[in-house]
Write a protein that binds this DNA or RNA. Structure first.
Lengths: 149, 149
DNA sequence: CATGAAATCAAATAAGC
DNA sequence: GCTTATTTGATTTCATG
């Protein structure tokens, strides 16, 4: 992990907020030739600085209007700590964080309905042998803003 | 909010996991002509189904190795509920969720160091007149996976 | 709404500095 | 590692079914 220099910072910042921006535009914005930018972006991808690109989708429109956080607490504290792999096939789970604090993991999930959430919780408990605490999201004032770099 | 038909679902699914995919590739993957796909993507963007595109960045590489959840509880329950706008200029906050449950809001933040987190917490408390509970992320097994559509 | 063709523009590679 | 030049391929518009 080596510090990003100015120009790479500028490129990642642009792509964080406008992931489909053309190399041509990018080159203008950061003040470099198109092929220089092209090389740098490829390098940032290879180094793993840029992990990929995603369209940000509206939950309502795609039929997944219900977002929730699910906190996991192991039932058996001596059980092996392999929760992420036990849960990775559950596609409603968009993110999985291992955390310090009262709980061991926090999941961010998106589902179609309360009934779907109920079913998801059952599957999570069964797959991971955990107890759960669920916090339903009422609204999302903002999400996925660009990092402060 | 009208149901997405099959082909638009396929397009959004592709772009969710590969946001920089060319229209040409997209057309092949969904089995339509390039210009038809082009029209549909523009339409999905205009309808707000696709809210934008983002590069997914590696926290370590961009100098923000510390991720945390901050839960907010209003100090004065009678105060106006304008926390998101009071906090929106704090760039370390990537997401802001209004939630049901013990707390009122959950923030997802990324910072450079424990000291930066301490400073951020001070600014959040001051700006929003809230008490905070912070859960530090130890690792992120996965994040931002494509929605289950 | 989809297609196919035409024109414009961008991406990708290579050569030279 | 940047630049310019070149080729290849993608984007975008438009006319048409």
């Amino acid at each position: 992990m080596t510090e990003l220099e100015q120009i790479d910072q500028a490129i990642t910042r642009e792509l964080a907020s406008d992931g489909r921006c053309s190399f041509t535009d990018l080159a203008e914005r950061v003040g470099l030739s198109v092929s220089a930018v092209h090389q740098r972006v490829r390098r940032l991808e290879q180094r793993g600085v840029i992990r990929g690109y995603a369209a940000r989708l509206d939950g309502e429109s795609i039929g997944l209007p219900l977002t929730a956080f699910i906190s996991l607490t192991p039932i058996d504290p001596a059980a092996p700590d392999d929760y992420p792999s036990r849960l990775q096939d559950i596609r409603e789970i968009e993110s999985c964080y291992s955390v310090a604090g009262e709980e061991s993991y926090i999941l961010l999930v998106r589902v179609a309905s309360p009934a779907a959430l109920e079913d998801l919780l059952r599957r999570v408990r069964e797959a991971a042998k955990v107890s759960t605490r669920t916090t339903v999201v009422l609204s999302t004032p903002y999400e996925g803003r660009s990092p402060a770099i």
